[in-house]
Design a protein around this nucleic acid. Structure first.
Length: 202
DNA sequence: ACCGGGATGTTCT
DNA sequence: GAACATCCCGGTG
């Protein structure tokens, strides 16, 4: 295998979405695109979205063409387009039909950093590369073509791997960012002490 | 450091 | 027509 560590199995994603979110911290997102070096970053900040019962979730109100991937089986990438110019990536969790997902909010760049710089001209510091859900997609080259990608088989080059770094215990927890409903829920999770989070943490 | 406005287009009411 | 799981840039302190 080309990336660091072992690709996470399907069963990893099938559990309770809050636990999966905490266990995703310190795992490694790898994008191996044809014709360019692989790039990878360590997950340091995520958010939980709980499908039809969560007023902040795209799945609130039921299935549509856009959110269809969320309602599918776990271990796939749900990529959506927003604000006319940005892509954001979620990991589908739980069981098929629940529409639960974990939004990737920040990574610490690991490998292929020059590729990330080339993909994100606006970045001024290394922190700027992946310190936000749309920034990390731009740096890693993740877009609408990756919606529905299988993270276990790596059918579109994207996988998530365990290289032996343990998740924090306890993880940081606080309200989600950029939403107007469900702001009372502490469903943003991060690696305490990380400087590359999307926003300063409490 | 913090704040405000504009970019840009898909999705849903 | 409004909202949007965002980001960037230029202002001010």
């Amino acid at each position: 295998m080309a990336g660091p560590g072992d690709v996470l199995p399907r069963t990893f994603y099938a559990g309770d979405v809050e636990l999966v979110a905490e266990h995703l911290l310190q795992k490694v997102v790898v994008h191996e695109a044809v014709g360019r070096p692989a790039c990878a970053g360590r997950i340091i900040e995520v958010e939980v979205y709980k499908g039809s019962e969560d007023p902040a979730s795209h799945a609130f109100g039921g299935r549509t063409a856009r959110n269809a991937t969320m309602f599918g089986p776990p271990g796939h990438l749900y990529v959506y387009f927003t604000y006319g110019m940005h892509f954001c990536a979620n990991v589908v969790c739980g069981t098929e039909g629940e529409a639960r997902a974990v939004l990737l909010r920040a990574l610490r760049p690991m490998t292929g950093v020059p590729v990330m710089w080339a993909a994100r001209r606006a970045a001024r510091t290394e922190r700027d590369l992946c310190s936000g859900p749309a920034k990390l997609c731009q740096s890693l080259g993740i877009d609408h073509r990756h919606d529905g990608a299988d993270l276990v088989t790596g059918d579109r080059g994207v996988t998530i791997r365990d290289d032996g770094v343990r998740p924090p215990s306890p993880a940081g927890a606080g309200p989600r960012i950029g939403i107007s409903a469900g702001t009372d829920l502490p469903w943003r999770r991060w690696v305490p002490g990380e400087r590359y989070c999307s926003r300063p943490v409490p």
